[in-house]
């Protein structure tokens, strides 16, 4: 193979051509969550049903009687993504449909906060669902309020700059890993091939599968819509949001190994929500990212 052909092959898009998401949705410009949905459906295909609680996607899909998706959706209560999906799966099984993939699709508030009880219950029972948390790191649909997924240092409307969030983001992946479910993966809209590959892998696994998808939000992060992919990629490359998977709660594999991690400061400076951070606070973010990265490396080695 010629060097040109090799280069061509390396950059060829491997995403399925099937489109189950139409234009006409109601997302903001540069919305990461919208891309995440599109990629997930490309991986799972049409035999999929979605349970979507209160979150940006409750609106993005479109108001009654419209829907921008070509798969069925049940709009469920805020804290019930997992429990509704569990019921849907049981109902489909009871009526003879054993093939359809049932997905709970929730934001970070619906996952890290109000929905964590139902999620933990489903994970402990190992209910046969895929739970996807698209994480834009705050309650964006209600107007940018902090959630337990909001990172240290971030401004939100309930963590004003004089009183910014001073606690780290909850480690939702570790919580799910502690349930020893068969499959957990992180994914980012900047790496669609990696996301689709892992989602396809998850589709063929039975039991509870959990995805933590990084989904930048220009509206809430005070970033430029055209920087969404750039920010997501920077977060992956500086170790702020590493791409990895955990099988059976034990076997951790880093999907994108980083020879050197870029400083987190460049990433923070592109977002208005971190504008107020002083050098010492930026250093604190860097230290936290470094510590997290070290933990991840240790868990891969162990």
């Amino acid at each position: 193979m010629s060097p040109e052909a090799k280069k061509e092959k390396k950059f060829a898009l491997t995403l399925p051509a099937e489109e189950l998401m139409a234009c006409g949705h109601l997302a903001c410009q540069g919305c990461g969550a919208t891309l995440a949905m599109r990629y997930m459906l490309k991986a799972l295909g049409q035999k999929t049903v979605l349970c979507i609680p209160a979150c940006c996607w409750a609106v993005i899909d479109g108001p009654y009687p419209y829907s921008s998706l070509d798969v069925p959706i049940y709009h469920c209560a805020f804290e019930t993504a997992a429990s509704t999906a569990t019921g849907v799966k049981a109902g489909l099984e009871a009526t003879g449909d054993t093939e359809t993939t049932v997905v709970a699709w929730a934001g970070d508030g619906g996952t890290f906060d109000i929905g964590i009880q139902a999620l933990s219950g489903a994970a402990e029972r190992n209910d046969d669902i895929i739970y996807v948390c698209y994480d834009n790191e705050a309650y964006m649909n209600t107007g940018i309020q902090r959630s337990s997924a909001t990172p240290y240092g971030a401004w939100t409307t309930t963590t004003p700059v004089k009183h910014f969030k001073n606690r780290p983001k909850k480690d939702i992946v570790a919580i799910l890993a502690a349930h020893r479910i068969p499959y957990i993966a992180t994914a980012s809209v900047s790496h669609p091939e990696d996301f689709v590959k892992k989602m396809k892998k998850a589709k063929d696994i039975r039991g509870t599968r959990f995805f933590h998808v990084y989904a930048p939000c220009p509206t809430g992060w005070k970033s430029r819509p055209e920087d969404t992919i750039k920010l997501a990629r920077m977060a992956v490359q500086n170790g702020y949001f590493p791409l990895y998977e955990i099988e059976d709660g034990e076997k951790t594999t880093v999907n994108l190994k980083l020879k050197e991690r870029k400083p987190v400061e460049d990433f923070l400076r592109l977002q208005g929500r971190f504008r107020h951070l002083k050098p010492a606070e930026v250093a604190a973010v860097q230290a936290e990212v470094d510590a997290r990265w070290e933990r991840l490396m240790r868990s891969c080695a162990g």
């Binding site: 349970c51 429990s83 509704t84 569990t86 019921g87 849907v88 049981a90 109902g91 489909l92 009526t95």
Partner: peptide
């Protein structure tokens, strides 16, 4: 919530 999910799935 899961009864609702089951019911809308036709069970």
């Amino acid at each position: 919530a899961s009864c609702i999910g089951a019911s809308v799935a036709g069970a």
